[in-house]
Amino acid sequence: MAKTILIVDDSSSLRTLVKMSLTRAGYDVIEASDGKVALDQIDKAAKVNLVVCDVNMPNMDGITFVGELKKNPRHKFTPVIMLTTEDDSGRMAQAKAAGARAWLLKPFNPPALLDTVSKVITA
């Protein structure tokens, strides 16, 4: 059974690009346009093996989302990769403290994304 990945990004074009890379590699993908929608989506989904999340988003940013996600025992161990244009070390430290597993810079190469995904995704 294919593993499911939740993509959280306010840019629909970026979601399309990430989805294209992941579906080609055989993953199932669900999408959300910000942190709030993502929390709603992940609760409705049967099983999410990984979250790929932008940082700078309206309504709820990526780092706040990770913090909220980790508060829910059901998703405590769901790994999160931050996929962002930001390269600020302070923000990285915040993401790490919130419970993210990796920080991947945009623009990204699909092989680099898939490599990162394969390293942190849970069974």
Binding site: L14, M20, N56, K106, P107, F108, P110
Partner: peptide, 19 residues
């Protein structure tokens, strides 16, 4: 085409700057 698609991520950075 794949490289073109990857190159289009510039739009996301532009979007951030505009934001």
């Amino acid at each position: 085409i794949e490289h073109l698609i990857i190159g289009m991520q510039f739009q996301d950075r532009v979007n951030q700057v505009m934001g």
